[in-house]
Design a protein around this nucleic acid. Sequence first.
DNA 1: CCTCTGATCTTCT
DNA 2: GAAGATCAGAGGG
Length: 209
Amino acid sequence: MTSTARLPHAFYQRDAVTVARALLGQRLVRRVPREHAPPLRLAGIIVETEAYLGVPDRAAHTFGGRRTARNRSMWRAGGHAYVYFTYGMHHCLNVVADAENEPVAVLIRALEPVEGLEIMRHRRLKARVDTDLASGPAKLCQAMAIDRALDGEDLVTSDRLWIERARRRALPARKISVGPRVGVAYAGPWADQPLRFHIRENPHVSRPR
DNA sequence: CCTCTGATCTTCT
DNA sequence: GAAGATCAGAGGG
């Protein structure tokens, strides 16, 4: 029997590294209302994450504690969404972690699609194979119809975006691969920190160059 | 397999 | 005015 219980507030109220590891194997769900039709339900298992550690973390948008119009959601309590727009065309989804006013978050980097595959294929026409549907932070936002309209969303109460518990316990460490974060070479020593986590041998994980 | 490049525009300096 | 928590396609080996 498949559980549909949402991850509770307390799940997110932990340090970003713990949350980044615990999110692996859980199910991200997007509900999209439609006129004259039942709502769409899109879902994918989280297979890759990165932790961003806030004020001291040179790679984080909240480095130095600077608040901007873009990053203000990161100061919210753990369990909210932080969605940003970048490169003039891409959106990326973060899950805010830890306590309110602790501006840390977890970037969701890849999903294994499990519900609404037909819709996702339609939204991702460039993907020749299903392992390319959501194998990157911007790809998954495209597949799941996630944009800035969902910035600041409360994942515990929202009817548009939430995360369900798909596994009872966190994945054992031996099934998680750990390494440096992608695309943050500018961050000095923080670029080398082991803050990227992904499920080992899962074909839906991103393949950065 | 690998490296290089263009796209495209919001955000912040 | 420049850069960016990216992606896709092209070209060469």
